[in-house]
């Protein structure tokens, strides 16, 4: 049973504290487990702090997403094969991610939110941000992919030539 009025204080990795409704935190497998492990009485209002390994700025974005998705069904549905598609991100989520485009470190923000969603076990947010990253990679050149995924080429020219030769099976 989830009591919507219950509130949980989250302490971030950079020392900030944020108090949020349990209605939001129920979407985080990590926070729910932490609360359960505290063995809080059903009728109590748990103000115990749950330490989350996420910085304040990223947690605020996570909470913004959770607020919009507070009524999403739980448990998050298991993904079927068909749901590999990355072009079905809801409009609100698309706008949410596009807001980061104005930030200088847009790529870092996306990575931080993906990592936070993974650590906090928020499946819906993780799925959406992975789709966003997939869309960023889609159709890009190798150099652009390296930039997006923050990769350094460690192949020799001969190794690259060999892989290009293999990839040439694909004519278009």
């Amino acid at each position: 049973r989830i009591y919507p009025l219950m509130r949980v204080t989250l302490t971030t990795s950079d020392g900030a504290s944020v108090t949020v409704s349990r209605q939001l935190t129920k979407h985080s497998g990590f926070i729910e487990k932490a609360i359960t492990d505290m063995a809080v009485d059903d009728n109590a209002v748990p103000l115990s702090a749950v330490a989350v390994d996420v910085d304040d700025a990223t947690l605020k974005l996570v909470i913004e997403w959770l607020t919009e998705h507070r009524d999403d069904a739980l448990p998050y549905p298991e993904k079927t094969d068909e749901e590999r598609r990355a072009d079905d991100i809801p409009a609100w989520d698309q706008a949410f991610v596009q807001k980061w485009d104005t930030k200088e470190d847009q790529q870092q923000t996306l990575y931080a939110v993906i990592t936070a969603a993974d650590k906090l076990d928020i499946k819906g947010l993780l799925d959406m941000t992975c789709k966003t990253l997939a869309n960023k990679i889609n159709g890009k050149t190798v150099e652009e992919m390296r930039e997006i995924l923050q990769l350094e080429c460690d192949f020799t020219e001969e190794e690259l030539a060999e892989i290009r030769k293999e990839n040439a099976w694909c004519e278009n």
């Binding site: 890009k140 192949f155 694909c170």
Partner: peptide
């Protein structure tokens, strides 16, 4: 790699085969 392996595996299920071919060229 900048992201955990479990996330990258999920990511690689969401992209086209042509993108997989190009990713082979990115790094070892």
């Amino acid at each position: 790699l900048a992201l955990p392996n479990v996330i990258l595996r999920d990511l690689l299920k969401k992209i086209e085969v042509k993108d997989r071919l190009r990713l082979r060229l990115s790094c070892r």
